[in-house]
């Protein structure tokens, strides 16, 4: 997102130098998981009416050498900001951190976020608090993530770390040099299906969507593929008609893609297809039969006694028969699987 700005990192700025500890100077890369951003956006919507921005704590993991930081989780922290004073609920931050760590013992404190891209004196103050010794992230630098939530503009994520700066010792507490570091939004395979569904609602007026069944999502994917093929063939046709400029690289790419179609004998395809489709259909059939049998078995179990008194014999014979049937079915299924 913020990758439009390009910057070169020669060395990471050093934290407060301490005798005995050798801070690393490797560049830092920040990876943000979408769920953290979702959470920040949600918090931004829930801010008090008079608040310009809200802040919160970032949690995540740090790679062993400290060069890559992954923001996985975050929680909101209450704060009040006036013209000349800022107040962060430290007690709340501490308690909440403890609660979060109980549920996610592998995550550590990374830094903090704010929902405005502005950096001011208060930012420096809070940054110094998060990067401090004791409760802070020290000796690692605290990461500051800003998500701009101005209406009518793109949502932009920027990440910073800071270096101490200050003319005198008193001024050093509320000043810091924020240095931008690169960040990227990364999502795993598990989150993909969730994101797919969520973004399915992005063009809808009511911003809601239902959960799709397997066949529906297949239909959508196929429709999309067909639309893409249509676009490509339109382009190819217009090149043939000498309406669009040709590109040999694109042509090569399309040829390579077409060459991926496997060369198999028609009879092989036919045979494999028939074998496989039969397997699939048999499994489907068996599953349905089992469902019916279970239903029947349950109905018999409760219906048996309505016709006569509770004699053990009737239920017995019926139970045995049922069991026998189930066993046969089970065996049938196993055979099928072995094939």
């Amino acid at each position: 997102m913020a990758d439009t700005d390009s910057f070169l990192h020669l060395a990471r700025p050093l934290g407060p130098a301490v005798v005995g500890a050798q801070p690393t100077t490797a560049p830092l890369n920040v990876v943000i998981q979408p769920s953290a951003i979702f959470s920040i956006l949600d918090h931004s919507l829930r801010r008090n009416a008079d608040q310009e921005r809200v802040i919160g704590t970032l949690l995540g993991t740090r790679s062993e050498d400290g060069t890559e930081v992954e923001i996985r989780n975050c929680f909101a922290v209450g704060h009040t900001e006036t013209q000349d004073q800022v107040e962060v609920d430290m007690e709340y931050q501490k308690q909440m951190l403890a609660l979060h760590l109980r549920a996610n013992p592998r995550e550590v404190l990374i830094g903090w976020y704010a929902t405005s891209s502005e950096l001011n004196t208060f930012s420096a103050l809070i940054q110094n608090f998060y990067g401090s010794q004791g409760d802070g992230t020290w000796p690692h630098p605290a990461v500051h993530l800003t998500i701009s939530t101005d209406p009518g503009q793109d949502i932009e994520a920027r990440t910073y770390i800071s270096a101490p700066v200050g003319v005198t010792a008193e001024r050093a507490a509320d000043s810091a040099a924020f240095i931008p570091v690169p960040n990227e939004i990364r999502y795993g395979d598990a989150e993909k299906s969730g994101l797919e569904l969520i973004s399915g609602a992005k063009d809808r007026e009511d911003r809601t969507t239902g959960v799709l069944t397997d066949i529906e999502s297949l239909e959508r994917a196929i429709e999309e593929v067909l639309a893409m093929l249509e676009r490509v063939s339109n382009y190819v046709n217009s090149v043939l008609d000498e309406e669009s400029p040709p590109s040999s690289a694109l042509g090569q790419f399309l040829m390579n893609a077409l060459a991926l179609a496997p060369k198999v004998d028609a009879s092989d395809v036919e045979r494999d297809f028939n074998n496989h489709i039969q397997d699939v259909l048999v499994i489907s059939y068996l599953a349905n039969t089992i469902r019916t049998q279970i239903d029947l078995s349950n109905r018999l179990a409760t219906a048996a006694l309505t016709t006569g008194p509770a004699d053990g014999l009737g239920g017995n014979a019926e139970g045995g028969q049922r069991g026998g049937r189930d066993q046969r079915k089970g065996r049938g299924q196993q055979n099928r699987e072995r094939e």
């Binding site: 949600d42 939530t149 609602a201 969507t209 590109s247």
Partner: peptide, 26 residues
Amino acid sequence: TIHNSHLLTSFLHQLPEKPRTGELEF
């Protein structure tokens, strides 16, 4: 059903990246 906030909808339109404006070169 799944519901998105306005802010999130705006964010989703930028994921995975913003669509480019203008003609692309071959």
